[in-house]
C-alpha cells in the first residue's frame, strides 16, 4: 500500500510490520478454497444442460475474482502493523476498512497465541489481545513464532504490572 496509507498512522511511532510469509500462507489457503470453485466451474462445462456461454462466463468471473483476491492479500498483509509504546500497544490493519486500535497494557485480560496447520508449516503465528470489551479486536497475524511468544510474554508482564480494575 502502503506508504501512503501507513504515513497516516506513522507520525512518531516505530511500527513493526508482519512477516511476508503470511502472504504465502493466505494465498495457499485461498488456492485451496479455489479448488472447490474450480470443480464447480468444470462441472458447469460438463453438464450438457448448461449453455456454453454461462460456463465460460463463470470461468472468467472466477479467474478475475481469484486475481483480485490474490492481489488484495498482498496489500492486506502489508497493512498489518503494531507498535509497543510505554503504556499501550497500537495495532493497525485494513485496506478497505482501515483501523487502528490503542490497547492499554493494563486493560489486557488475555493474550492468545494461535496458528493453524498451514500457518504452522510456514512458521507464522497470530497474537490476539482481549480486553473486557468485545469490540477491541486487536489481532496481529503473521508473526514469527519466536517473536509471537516474546511479544506475548512482554504483553503479559506489562499487563500484570499495570492491571486496572474495571
Amino acid at each position: 500500500m502502503s506508504d501512503r496509507t501507513r504515513a497516516a498512522f506513522t507520525t512518531t511511532d516505530a511500527w513493526t510490520l508482519v512477516s511476508p510469509r503470511l502472504i504465502v500462507a493466505r494465498r495457499i489457503t485461498l488456492s485451496l478454497a479455489y479448488v472447490l470453485v474450480a470443480a464447480g466451474v468444470v462441472a458447469l462445462f460438463l453438464i450438457p444442460a448448461v449453455p456454453r456461454w454461462v460456463a465460460i462466463g463463470a470461468a472468467v468471473v472466477a479467474v478475475v475474482v481469484f486475481g483480485w483476491l490474490w492481489w488484495l492479500i498482498g496489500r492486506r498483509v502489508r497493512s498489518f502493523g503494531y507498535c509497543e509504546r510505554g503504556d499501550d500497544l497500537l495495532v493497525t490493519s485494513g485496506i478497505m476498512f482501515r483501523r487502528m486500535v490503542i490497547v492499554p497494557y493494563g486493560r489486557m485480560q488475555l493474550v492468545d497465541v494461535k496458528a493453524g496447520p498451514i500457518d504452522r508449516w510456514l512458521g507464522v503465528t497470530t497474537v490476539q489481545l482481549h480486553t473486557a470489551a468485545a469490540t477491541t479486536d486487536a489481532k496481529i497475524p503473521g508473526l514469527v513464532p519466536a517473536d509471537a511468544a516474546d511479544l506475548r510474554d512482554r504483553l503479559a508482564q506489562r499487563g500484570e504490572q499495570r492491571t486496572a480494575g474495571l
Partner: peptide, 12 residues
C-alpha cells in the same frame, strides 16, 4: 477511566 481501548476506523 472506564475506556477499555480506543479505536480509529475508516470505511471505504
Amino acid at each position: 477511566a472506564r475506556a477499555q481501548s480506543v479505536r480509529f476506523t475508516q470505511g471505504p
